[in-house]
Design a protein around this nucleic acid. Sequence first.
DNA 1: CGCTGTTGGTAACGCGCGTTACCTGCCGGG
DNA 2: CCCGGCAGGTAACGCGCGTTACCAACAGCG
Lengths: 355, 355
Amino acid sequence: MAKTTPDESVPVRQRGVTMKDVANHAGVSRTAVSFVLSNRENASISEETRARISDAVQELGYRPNAGARALAARRSDWYGIVTEIVTAPFAVDIIKGAQDQAWLDRRFLLIAPSDQADAVGPNDGLEDAATEKLLEQRVEGLLYAATFHRGVHVPESAKEVPTVLINCFDADGKLPSIVPDERAGGRVAVERLLQAGHTRIGVINLDPDIPAAVGRLEGAREALALAGLELDPELVVSGYATADGGYEAACRILDRYPPADRPTALFCLNDRMAMGAYDAIKERGLTIPGDIAVIGFDNQELIAAYLRPKLTTVALPFEKMGALGVQTLAALTAGQPILANQQLVGCPLLERSSV
Amino acid sequence: MAKTTPDESVPVRQRGVTMKDVANHAGVSRTAVSFVLSNRENASISEETRARISDAVQELGYRPNAGARALAARRSDWYGIVTEIVTAPFAVDIIKGAQDQAWLDRRFLLIAPSDQADAVGPNDGLEDAATEKLLEQRVEGLLYAATFHRGVHVPESAKEVPTVLINCFDADGKLPSIVPDERAGGRVAVERLLQAGHTRIGVINLDPDIPAAVGRLEGAREALALAGLELDPELVVSGYATADGGYEAACRILDRYPPADRPTALFCLNDRMAMGAYDAIKERGLTIPGDIAVIGFDNQELIAAYLRPKLTTVALPFEKMGALGVQTLAALTAGQPILANQQLVGCPLLERSSV
DNA sequence: CGCTGTTGGTAACGCGCGTTACCTGCCGGG
DNA sequence: CCCGGCAGGTAACGCGCGTTACCAACAGCG
């Protein structure tokens, strides 16, 4: 039914000016042009002809053909990134970071969506079709990025080129991965609350099984332990990772105790839940941070920066992870060793007005 | 100092299997392989050798080289999109829509960021460097996408290939563009409020000069006119396009009148301002939508879907604009005529709970 | 004068593939 | 017997470019 080729009616392309044209115009050989353009230092070209060639390039508006160059040089200067982020843009900053870094390295980042309609098989991981497409473009390395920190399954064919995982990790732990340091993030959040004098801290938890929840909670425990305190299991309530879930969880915590025993601070494991917690607190005539301090996690700008009062939260270092992913990939493709198989990236605390 | 080429130490690439390998393995000529792979119907290849070739492809794990194919066929099947969206992801759905549509068309969408550090000149428009890079890849068409509806300046070199603007337009109006129908959106918002019985409607306006404000306000006036009403200029207040701006504007409107004269509905020209308006309303002990109905614009999921009550708003059709952009580009590159130079895309009303 | 470098280039090959022109049987019809 | 036509291929060229091998002219030197 559908053709595999886009359309059969081949339109007339603008005939681009090639190196041969430049050579003719400058009265030299094509080889000389190639030498000048690739800036070969050991090649011997006189300053004079070098200038003539540069002029010809200018005058004709020559633009190199990246594809032909890649073919001849057997290196494409392309990386590929497979991601569901385009679809679920929560972590779009990963792409930004990777894109920027690749640009700095004079490389092109091909972005392939991982959840297309023609994808087959169980969508537990990142897709084969996208990987295949990227390999057809002869990318020199692959990145896989997930919207939230989790384990993924990477297609077999990815093993053909250097591969780095961002915000995710593979089950067997063979591939290098870049993930947020959830534990340190949880710790810094609770340390901030302790520093503000709060000792009775409620925790609004995510699905307890996901890496984010495990790590952040562990960090919270560490911070309390360092202060000689323990995490009261009663003060940890889980809910759906939404504003409604946060609202309900906050209600449960706030209504369970008489005002004197009530926690004076809430650590919400994501900003959406913090958003709901705000409502629960305000609804009870309490103020933030006067009566209840709130600290979030994720730094979803649209929420954290616009809540009233603005939400103090721990940021996920998406952009940095993206950049680090590309750097790691660059090291791998250059045959250099990398520091560690799993690199943890710190989650900085962003002070706003809710603590 | 910095080399123009990424790194000089060329690593050993995996030697990919080529069509020649397949041909040898199947005992036929490379031409035969090419014919089979490109599915040429007029070529005469017996079913038997056709099968032998397919088997060889499977066994060797042959993967076509997209770059070489593009070179030989003189068509790349690539489009390029230049956008600042990667950086300011508000409208990231444009990319998603374009990406999906391109994928359906079996084309690859190269995404180039338009606000890189090495960009030169006044950053009033979309960048030359990115365009140049994409043309070096021999993209067959270009898309330019902006995060918010506005006029842009497109580089000269973009004229070399078919070009379509998404969520923006060029000053001279020569290039085809896809933009949201702001006017219809404003009308549908106010119609919804009228339908709910509101006749005294406050408007929280954006910077009055931008296309979004002009169009949406005009639509609001139209809706009122159809109902035999006029827009009271006193009820239109402008503010910064933030939650704080919305809060302040809402306070001004709400506090200006005694309860009896107070508007019973607020049309906020974006969701962030609606978010602030919520606070102003709740602070005054009023309920949504009981005392004051609120309707937003933009449908920023993170806000609209998580506010309490959830915000009824008018959606910007980012994804659809992206897809339409690619479709328009496909028509252009195929030499087909396009419908109109400026295509307006409808902004659907999303009913939630704030009206 | 012959020999060796050095400077300033060029011819030619190959990267992987699409495409066109051509070639070789073989069969049927006149 | 010859000719035309068709099925089933193949040889060869070119896409735009990187790269290697080679070559001519000339200077210096013993």
